[in-house]
């Protein structure tokens, strides 16, 4: 099938690229645009590793076509911090041992990033429900939940 042009805002920058209609957003980000921070796990919407933020909402990038984001806004894990200059949520993951192998981490971070914007003062239960669609096989979730709670309370103390 012929490629279609996709123009959208990626991590604050206008981008234009071509995509085969059958290419999902996750592959598009990784293979066409070279942003390999987004991880692809199950490719049927179960594991949550590929979560990115589209138009403000966390979505599974394996269940959206690249051509569907034409005119939209996408945020990936690359929009958070950089090595040596991590975002508050990333720092909290590090401090709380919220990751081991790191495969689920970009999906966890983008899910929680979107979640904390709409729920700035969550309970532990809220956080657990928010990440219920993200599977981690290393941590037992404890450190991830604590990282989200720490990030929320640190932000509340700052403001």
């Amino acid at each position: 099938m012929t490629d279609q042009s996709v123009t959208f805002t990626l991590n604050g920058q206008q981008r234009e690229a071509a995509a085969d209609p059958r290419m999902h957003l996750g592959d598009f980000l990784r293979h066409s645009l070279g942003l390999t921070g987004t991880h692809i796990g199950c490719e049927h919407g179960v594991c949550g590793a590929c979560t990115v933020i589209v138009d403000g909402s966390p979505v599974r990038s394996c269940l959206m076509l690249a051509v569907q984001i034409d005119g939209g806004t996408v945020e990936t894990v690359e929009s958070l911090g950089k090595p040596g200059d991590l975002s508050p949520l990333q720092k909290a993951f590090s401090a709380n041992h919220g990751l081991q192998c790191g495969f689920c981490t970009p999906g966890m971070l983008m899910t929680l990033e979107a979640f904390l914007r709409t729920t700035p003062a969550p309970t532990e239960e809220d956080v657990r429900v928010a990440i219920s669609g993200n599977i981690c096989r290393c941590t037992g979730y404890q450190g991830i939940v604590q990282a989200a709670l720490d990030t929320a309370s640190a932000k509340a103390n700052r403001t």
């Binding site: 919407g45 589209v54 909402s57 966390p58 979505v59 899910t111």
Partner: peptide, 9 residues
């Protein structure tokens, strides 16, 4: 029904 990511779509 699903999770926040699937309910968003």
């Amino acid at each position: 029904v699903g999770h926040i990511q699937t309910r968003a779509r």
